[in-house]
Amino acid sequence: MQNLITDVPGVLVGNADDRERATGVSVVLFEEAAAAAVSILGGAPGVRDTALLEPEMTVETVDAIVLSGGSAFGLDAAGGVMAVLVERGRGFRVGDALVPIVPQAILFDLLNGGDKAWGRKPPFFDLGAAACEAASAGFRLGTAGAGYGATTATLKGGLGSASAVTESGFVVGALVAVNAVGTATMGEGPHFWAAPYEQNAEFGGIGWPYARPKDALVPRLKGGPGRNTTIAVVATDARLGKAQAKRIANAAHDGLARALRPAHTPLDGDIVFAAGTGRREVAGPMALNEIAMAASDVLARAVARGVYEATALPYPGALPAWKDRFGRIMVSP
């Protein structure tokens, strides 16, 4: 176990980013087509090909899921992923044609200091293809992939991941690009809202503060409409139908609410995909309940890891990274 979404059998992740433009793409690639669903609880989402994920729609499985920076420009990334998958013979067959099924969500990172003057050819098609080609079991966190240009209200955001094994033995993992309108930490201090769910000091191990900071609940918000959005994928090795995947995606949103203040606002997109690779059968509703609980926990942990592992962008006025401000804090023995 690497404490990554790729601990789920059948899941690979690839990142590609552009330092000059301060943006990037992450691809969750399924070794075999997987049942998937999406749940959107924020008021400002940006998505591609998500309608087909609803339970009543014809296509049953997806080949990959894309998370991207670039706001609506970033929606080109799925095209790059599709081009690579067609070369590999992947996709939904219609006669002699193959159409890879690649839903996508995007976040807004156009005002983070990077050069966004890309003219008529935004970089996202190429970034999507590169991320797909880079997909493997190991990948970078923090300022990487879709989290490269991400921010929160007070600190640099980033790409986070975490995994867990349920009591019944199902593996559940999460990948998230944290670009929240609010904060992942309490007030002006170092403590993560997700601290109760931390495993093995994965985001510093400092736990809760002795007493809640007086300013913990003071709202800290960035930007305005369309400048935010936290986007995520949760995956499990369970065999799920689309309706079951939808239930897991809904439950996983609790992880965003535990790790970010606020979540699910009119100013966030807050999109969660859920997928099952079908390696293990689900025996009854209690097993599905375990997966749902684990999905929300690993997503909360992944959010904190994304902020904890980030490094600041090299631009004037860029937000500091958590480690820049709090990296010298030592955990008490």
Rank of each mutant, 00 (worst) to 15 (best):
A274M: 14
A287Y: 12
A287I: 03
G306N: 07
V307G: 12
A302E: 05
A287E: 15
V272L: 06
A292I: 02
P314F: 00
P316M: 08
L313N: 12
G269C: 02
A312C: 10
A274C: 12
A295I: 04
I291G: 00
E290F: 00
A263E: 02
E309Q: 05
G278F: 09
G306Y: 00
Y308H: 15
A295L: 05
A304L: 12
A302R: 07
T265V: 08
E281G: 04
A263H: 09
P285W: 02
L313I: 05
H264G: 09
R261W: 02
P285F: 03
A274P: 05
F273G: 03
V303D: 14
G278Y: 01
R279M: 11
A292F: 04
A292V: 03
A259Y: 00
V303S: 14
A263Y: 06
E309W: 05
T311I: 09
P314E: 00
L288D: 00
T265H: 07
V307P: 11
V298T: 11
L260G: 01
M293G: 15
A283K: 11
D270W: 04
R279L: 06
L299V: 10
A300E: 04
T265Y: 05
E309Y: 13
R305E: 11
V303A: 12
T277C: 07
A275G: 05
L260M: 12
P316E: 04
A283C: 02
A300I: 07
L299R: 13
E281C: 03
Y315T: 08
M286G: 06
R280W: 01
G306S: 09
A294N: 00
E281V: 06
A312G: 13
R279Y: 10
R280Y: 00
L288V: 03
A259Q: 06
I291M: 10
P266G: 11
L267V: 14
E281H: 05
D270V: 06
A310K: 07
D297I: 14
V307W: 01
A304W: 03
R279N: 06
R301I: 10
R305A: 09
A283M: 08
L288E: 15
N289L: 13
M286F: 13
L313V: 12
A312E: 14
A295P: 07
I271M: 13
D297T: 15
A295M: 11
A283H: 08
F273S: 04
A263V: 10
I291E: 01
Y315A: 12
E281Q: 09
P314Y: 00
A263Q: 05
A287L: 14
A295R: 06
L299P: 06
G269A: 10
A259H: 02
I271P: 06
A287W: 02
E281N: 03
A275N: 09
S296A: 15
V307A: 14
R280I: 11
E309M: 12
N289A: 09
P266T: 08
H264K: 07
A310G: 07
P314T: 02
A300K: 08
S296D: 06
